[in-house]
């Protein structure tokens, strides 16, 4: 019995760690929605949610309870299996990326050698949720949203992957912990300075990849009602909502690890090894919200033009410059 326990212990620890990470991430996601409403409210001279609990702090919990209690409607003529499956694909592909991100020096669930590629692979899979939701709903609006999403995600994925190549070149590794360590030992401490073009391309394409304003054409409510999830209700709608914010958190976390030096900071905070990681993460999440409050939506051809004619050439230029500097310096 003891032998079995001993053999199973690493697995049990891993499962417990994964659960803790998931719960913490879910809380972050829930309160990102609260922060978004509050911040945008103040930016637009409003108060934002302030009824449920002190300063409206219990609003996300009330929202979850409300969404759970609503009726789950499947439209007539929808492809039932895919309709049920689509939100889960979105959510799982978004959440799984958290496993390879090092929160601090000794905490990373899966320390894989090709961590960066795993993140790219999972973000490319998450587009299936959107595309399938659009198709299986049997609705014109949803279908158009799905079509737009597939074109947008495919084009911006290229720019995103290319913007990360500079980081790979500088760090000489695709393991995310190694990338953070390489940044700490580099003269700049963070790659956002020498990789400023890469950082810019990554941030822009990350916004497009998560379908956020100003690139939220797949769900543009003034044109497509709500795009791919127009037919979804109750808990399945909540899953899509969660997936969008999970995507935001994951993309910000990737930017923190690849460009902003991960867990490292100007001084160490005793007892809180994740302090600087979270500070940087919150700063980037605030940036996402700020962008949403500031910029109007792009037109579809402008979006495609920006992706293919500006971001991809910029990312390629960045690779050439980084490679050249690495070779001759």
């Amino acid at each position: 019995m003891e032998a079995i326990l001993k053999a199973a212990l690493p697995g049990i620890i891993l499962i417990v760690e994964a659960l803790v990470l998931l719960v913490v991430a879910l809380l972050h996601v829930a309160y990102t929605t609260y922060a978004e409403r509050k911040v945008i409210g103040h930016m637009q001279q409003r108060l934002g949610p302030n009824r449920v609990g002190p300063r409206g702090l219990l609003q996300p919990i009330a929202d979850v309870v409300k969404l759970l209690a609503k009726e789950d409607i499947v439209p007539l003529g929808a492809d039932k299996g895919l309709f049920y499956l689509a939100p889960f694909i979105s959510l799982v592909a978004g959440a799984t990326s958290l496993a390879v991100i090092p929160i601090w020096n000794r905490f990373v669930l899966a320390d894989v050698n090709v961590g960066l590629l795993v993140i790219l692979a999972l973000s490319s899979l998450s587009s299936y949720g959107v595309i399938l939701a659009g198709w299986s709903s049997n609705s014109r609006y949803a279908f158009l949203g799905g079509l737009r999403a597939s074109a947008q995600v495919v084009s911006y994925e290229v720019a995103m992957a290319l913007s990360l190549v500079g980081v790979m070149l500088m760090a000489g590794s695709m393991n995310l912990s190694e990338i953070v360590k390489a940044q700490i030992s580099s003269p700049f401490k963070i790659y956002a300075l020498p990789q400023i073009i890469g950082f810019f391309v990554f941030m822009v394409s990350a916004i497009a990849e998560t379908n956020r304003v100003p690139f939220d054409l797949p769900e543009a409510e003034t044109e497509l009602v709500a795009g791919y999830f127009v037919e979804y209700s109750a808990i399945r709608f909540a899953l899509f909502y969660l997936a969008e914010y999970f995507g935001m958190v994951v993309m910000s976390a990737v930017a923190v690890t690849c460009f902003l030096g991960g867990w490292a900071g100007p001084f160490e905070v005793p007892g809180l090894p994740f302090f600087w990681f979270l500070i940087k993460l919150y700063a980037l999440l605030f940036f996402y919200i700020w962008v949403r409050a500031t910029l109007p939506r792009y037109r579809y051809d402008q979006l495609m033009g920006l992706g293919w004619k500006v971001l991809i050439p910029l990312a390629l230029l960045n690779i050439v410059i980084t490679g050249g500097l690495k070779l001759w310096w």
Binding site: V112, N113, V114, L117, V118, L120, A121, S124, L125, S127, Y128, I131, W135, F143, G146, L147, S150, A151, V153, V154, E157, A161
Partner: peptide, 26 residues
Amino acid sequence: AEFLAAIQIIVYAGAVLVLFLFVVYL
């Protein structure tokens, strides 16, 4: 072969099949 596995998903699942779906939709 981790690299091959990741490339398999990025290129085939993430790009080629999405384009297939796109064509089938059109």
